[in-house]
């Protein structure tokens, strides 16, 4: 292997053509880039999806996130992480943001940004909470609130795989939300659930429509027993949501016999929520 710099002769640069030591290559430097908002989609009353075109986007893996930075005129900076909801196969990236009423960043992203506006971000970030359909199944996804976003990237990635691959990776998704109106990606999840290899279950913890046939409580041991893959099938589990939900679900899964190394978690939320 020789070191070649595209468009330039190594000889003219005085770089000898020698073998390179083989090591895991360093990932490209994480640079701040200015993305352009292409589309804003209303998902729920409190959540919007921003579809972004990012110049020289290197591609991402399902589950990764970006850091978003806002800089005020006086130089004050606020930075937050947002999960990517779109599949790696797509050329643009989609961030779904839920408004925190006292937030510094989310109200701007939801109320102010319009198509054509720029947004400073860096990414993709993360090598732990990531999943690829080549990892085989079965796959268990557990979401609380906007914790559905990185899991949706996994679902969409799965949907775009070929039939044979998809059949090898059955997916079960359990999604906990306060009320039906807070459920993000409702219509798409209904379509996804029509696939034989995907099962989607919902639980509504605060209000449920009178004709609701799904669960109406916080996720507990009995619900996980209904929904989860048996531990003997060596499933992988990804759990994303507010810290208390993630901690309780991860603990229950370990108690149900899941291999802790196959449970991956991502938490968010205000302290003490």
């Amino acid at each position: 292997m020789t070191a070649a710099i595209p468009g330039e002769s190594n000889a003219t640069r005085g770089i000898p053509e020698v073998s390179q030591p083989i090591a895991a290559p360093a990932a490209p430097r994480l640079e701040w880039r200015v993305a352009t908002v292409i589309e804003v989609r209303e998902e729920t009353q409190r959540a919007r999806t921003l579809v972004l075109n990012v110049p020289e986007w290197p591609g991402h893996r399902a589950g990764q996130h970006v850091d978003v930075r806002l800089v005020a005129e006086d130089g004050y900076q606020a930075q937050r992480s947002y999960s990517i909801g779109s599949a790696p196969e797509e050329k643009t990236i989609a961030l779904t943001v839920e408004r925190l009423e006292d937030g510094e960043v989310s109200p701007y992203l939801i109320d102010v940004l319009r198509p054509g506006d720029g947004l400073e971000l860096r990414g993709p970030i993360g090598g732990y909470f990531v999943w690829d359909v080549a990892q085989r199944g079965p796959l268990l996804l557990v979401a609380g609130g906007s914790g559905i976003v990185p899991l949706m990237a996994m679902v969409r990635h799965h949907m775009l795989a070929d039939d044979k691959t998809r059949a090898r990776v059955p997916v079960r998704l359990l999604y906990s939300a306060r009320r039906w109106d807070d459920v993000i990606y409702r219509d798409e999840l209904a379509r996804v659930a029509e696939r034989p290899e995907v099962e989607v279950s919902f639980t509504l913890t605060r209000d449920a429509p009178s004709d609701w046939v799904g669960y109406r409580r916080r996720i507990d041991r009995a619900m996980l027993q209904d929904v989860c893959w048996p531990a003997a099938e060596t499933p992988r589990a990804y759990v994303c949501g507010p810290t208390p939900l993630v901690e309780s679900v991860a603990t229950l899964l370990v108690e149900a016999g899941y291999d802790p190394m196959r449970i991956r978690t991502e938490r968010f939320g205000p302290t003490g929520s």
Binding site: V66, D67, E104, I125, G126, F129, T243, E266, P270
Partner: peptide
């Protein structure tokens, strides 16, 4: 001003850690 006193996890620190490390260290 820091109204969102957030407790998240090491995933969210991935970007900042990448300022130091050449490779992702969240895994």
């Amino acid at each position: 001003m820091q109204v969102e006193q957030m407790r998240l996890d090491g995933n969210a620190a991935g970007g900042m850690l990448r300022e130091l490390f050449a490779r992702d260290v969240t895994a």
